[in-house]
Amino acid sequence: MNDPKIQIKNLYKIFGKSPQKALKSVQSGMGKDALREATGHVLGVDNVSLDIAPQNIQVVMGLSGSGKSTLIRHINRLIEPTAGEILVDGKNVLAMDKDALRDLRRFKMSMVFQHFGLFPHRRVIENVTYGLIVQGMDEAEADKRARQWISRVGLEGYENNYPGQLSGGMRQRVGLARGLATDADILLMDEAFSALDPLIRYDMQSILIDLQKELHKTIVFITHDLDEALRLGDNIAILRDGHLVQQGSAQDIVLRPADDYIEDFIKDINRARVIKLGSIMQPLGRGKLPDSAPRLDADTILQDALMVVAQSNGNTVIVEEQGKPKGKITTRAVIEALHG
């Protein structure tokens, strides 16, 4: 296992007049609502610890007010924590002076915003070159790189438009191109697709998935949309009232919800499109495998497996990983998994 790219350790953020005093109450067990009533302080992030693996998409999910946008802003220190530690590549972000922090933001990570955060007075091309110019790259080189990224996100021909002339989906492509152009290995995406309508959002997710196959960035993706979380996340962390309720793969969350809150969350999702055979297969046991039994890959989602399983007439289906049989699955197990 690789070392985590980003480590968040016991992070607290309390908004208000004297956060340090409020911190003591929180650490001795006071909840978000109680704290607001007693002291007027707002608990943004409550003792969150999270290791984010390199080259993965880490989704942080929660409803509005759960502290997810506050959490992501700690990673590049747009917000100062009340207590806790943040390490990026093993270096303590909170110990950095202004210059080191600026370099971190210039070269190590970039950000994509919910409402795009584009510069309305700059053309598309000038928006995308922004991060490069701030890095100190000369303009011709920055321009060349920016044009590559603009065409990579499918906006060729719009280089000289102002953001105000583009649709929402196109604007966020500009935001994405701007974030990718700096070549930082960490990409922070704060509800990046939440302001888009569902079809465009799906498109943007596909673009991100395609890009990620090539680029292997460490992406921290904030969303309030469970379908989005399940589709994108290699690992998903769920926040509620500032604290971490559960983290794990999409399979973990759907098959083994930590509490009622999460169970409530996953009630309405389409389980057939999330659960993979690998997560529900049973050990093969001894004995020879029937040659005639159909075989499916462990990454197959239930939806795609249903026909095969149905045609097996109640017999076993063999689940393979990289071409080797790893487990088996029965009609009953599939139905149970679908039912939840």
Binding site: L78, R102, R106, S110, G117, F119, G131, R178, T182
Partner: peptide, 9 residues
């Protein structure tokens, strides 16, 4: 927009 400028260093 300001946050964006800041986030890019």
């Amino acid at each position: 927009v300001l946050e964006a400028a800041e986030a890019f260093g």
